[in-house]
Design a protein around this nucleic acid. Structure first.
Lengths: 151, 151
DNA sequence: TTGACATCGTTCCATATGGAACAATATTAT
DNA sequence: ATAATATTGTTCCATATGGAACGATGTCAA
C-alpha cells in the first residue's frame, strides 16, 4: 500500500494532492530547521513577518497568520533570547512592543529560505518552463482568492 | 500587512502558494473534525488507510504515511476504544495486529471526506473546467514524482 | 472625570506529538 | 539448537501547541 494508491480514489483530488505535496515539501525542511538551526515553527512565522516588514507588533503577526496570541508571544520571547529579534516598547501604546529582526535573525531566516528554494527547484525539476508558469498562475489565482473561499 | 503581500516577495513562489493554500484548506477542516467528530489527525490517518484497504498492520500505516509508530499506536488504540476500528491478532505473526475499519469508523471517515470535498469545490469555484483539469494534471505529476524529489 | 468595555501580551493548564527505551516475538547465522 | 539480531507495538518522557483566564493599558460614553 502506498499513499499514491489512495490518491487515485480520493473524492477531493486537487486538495489531496496539494496537501500531499505540502507534507513532503515543508515537513522535512521544518524538521531540519529545528534540528540544525534550533528554530521552531512559530519562530519561523515571526522571522518571516519581521523580515518582510519593519516595526511590526505581535498582534499584527497573529492577525496575518491566524496564529493564537500565546504562540506568537512565546516565539517572540524565545527569538529575543536567542538574539534574533529586538523588541522595544511602543511609544504611543505601552501595551504594544515594536518588533524588528536582527542581523542574526535575518541570517537564520535566509538559510531557511535557501532550504525551501532548493527543495522547490528539485520538486519542479520534472516540469517544463511552460508548465511551471501555468502552475504558478493557477496557484496564485487560488491563493489570492482565499478570502472568498475559506470556511 | 497581509500574507498575500509576502507572497509576492517569496523566493519559492510555487511552494509558498501550495503551503499557503494547504493551511487554509486543511487546517479549518481538521479543527472542525476534532471539535465536531472527536477525531484527531493521526486518527484520520488510520481511518483513511483502513478505509482504503482491509487487513492492514499498524506498521504499514507508519511506512506509508511516515508517521512515528507511537503516534499510530495511540491512534489505533483510541479508535478501537471509540468503536471505529477493530483489531485482531495476526495469525502468522503474533506481534502484529490486523486492523479493520468498522461501520461507525467508515461513517466518520465519510463525513470528513465530505467536508474536504465541499471545501475543495469552494476553493476551485473561480476556475474554469479547463483550468481545473490543468491544475490537476500538474499537481498529479509532481505528486507522483515525490519519490524522486523528496529530500 | 470616571466607570464600562476593548485590546495587547502573558501565564496557566490540558492535550498533542515525537524521540528513545522497552518487552515480546520473529528471523538469521553459526 | 541456540545465540545474536531485527521487527512490532507500547510506554515513558520532554516539548510543542492552543484555549481560557489574567493583569495592564487604552478607548469610549455618560
Amino acid at each position: 500500500m502506498k499513499l499514491l494508491d489512495i490518491i487515485d480514489a480520493t473524492p477531493f483530488p486537487i486538495g489531496y494532492r496539494i496537501a500531499f505535496i505540502t507534507n513532503f515539501l515543508r515537513e522535512p525542511i521544518l524538521r531540519r530547521m529545528e534540528r540544525e538551526l534550533g528554530i521552531i515553527r512559530p519562530e519561523l512565522t515571526v522571522l518571516m513577518c519581521t523580515c518582510f516588514r519593519e516595526d511590526v507588533h505581535a498582534r499584527d503577526i497573529c492577525e496575518v497568520t491566524e496564529q493564537p496570541s500565546n504562540t506568537i508571544s512565546r516565539a517572540v520571547s524565545s527569538l529575543e533570547k536567542k538574539g534574533h529579534l529586538s523588541r522595544k516598547e511602543d511609544q504611543f501604546d505601552t501595551r504594544k512592543q515594536v518588533l524588528n529582526i536582527t542581523p542574526s535573525g535575518k541570517e537564520v531566516h535566509d538559510k531557511v529560505m535557501v532550504m525551501f528554494t532548493e527543495s522547490e527547484d528539485a520538486m519542479l525539476a520534472g516540469l517544463s518552463e511552460m508548465e511551471k508558469a501555468q502552475l504558478l498562475a493557477l496557484l496564485d489565482k487560488i491563493a489570492r482568492n482565499v478570502p472568498r473561499w475559506r470556511p
